[in-house]
């Protein structure tokens, strides 16, 4: 008979040589969602496993091994994004301090009314059962600017807290809010145009 699993404080991470086989693809996909570059994603997996190897004692057995490794990877991703932000502080045409209204002519008229009113979405619940829908959503995500996409993936796909993101990336909540707003606006519109049907026609300016 197998002995019961040891209490949490005695638990250790399993043999590091098995990590790559067990979690390699999972970590790779997680990284790929964020960086969209295969060799960068591979590097992140490597760095993550290496850091895990060196920090093995830090694994306290409370979380699953996969959660622990994913946490390390997420830190690496956020670190990398913060470095990028330092080098090129703000998005093209969206310097720090530009408010939420900046560059939104695509969505709103000068008086703040919708340029094109949001259209009716037919049967969203049914759409999500369709495999092709997820390809469209992935495609819409790709079309965001890199920073909007990165932030959106962290916030909504990985479910990171807003405070965690702002602290880790050293950006203000206002700034994060502006980029998330733009990302959500673009994604909603992209889904409408490419999946949920045509928007109501209004005059193009």
């Amino acid at each position: 008979m197998q002995p019961p699993s040891p209490p949490p404080d005695d638990r250790q991470a399993s043999d590091p040589q098995t990590w790559l086989g067990t979690y390699g693809d999972y970590l790779y996909r997680y990284a790929l969602l964020q960086v969209r570059d295969e060799s960068l994603a591979e590097d992140l997996v490597q760095e993550t496993l290496l850091a895990a190897l060196k920090g093995r004692d830090g694994f306290d057995g409370r979380a699953s091994e996969r959660t622990w490794l994913t946490g390390i990877l997420k830190h690496k991703i956020i670190d990398q994004l913060r470095r990028q932000y330092r080098e090129v502080p703000m998005e093209e045409g969206n310097p720090d301090g530009e408010g939420e209204d900046f560059g939104m002519e695509e969505f709103f008229a000068a008086d703040g009314h919708w340029a094109t009113k949001p259209g009716a979405w037919n049967d969203p619940a049914k759409s999500t059962e369709n495999a092709h829908f997820w390809e469209v959503l992935l495609g819409c995500l790709e079309r965001l600017s890199p920073r909007q996409r990165q932030l959106f993936v962290l916030r909504e796909l990985h479910g990171s807290g807003n405070a965690e993101i702002c602290k880790g990336m050293d950006i203000t909540p206002t700034n994060a809010g502006v980029m998330l707003y733009r990302a959500r606006m673009s994604l909603r519109q992209c889904l409408e145009l490419n999946w949920f049907g045509q928007p109501r026609k209004t005059e193009k300016r």
Binding site: Y26, R29, L32, T128, L137, H158, G159, E192
Partner: peptide
């Protein structure tokens, strides 16, 4: 529609994380 993006995004993540097309 805006609120529906969050659960969609979460499901997209779990689909990609188990998608065998993406492999090391």
């Amino acid at each position: 529609q805006l609120r529906s993006l969050r659960p969609m995004a979460a499901e997209l993540e779990s689909r990609v994380l188990t998608d065998d097309r993406f492999k090391l």
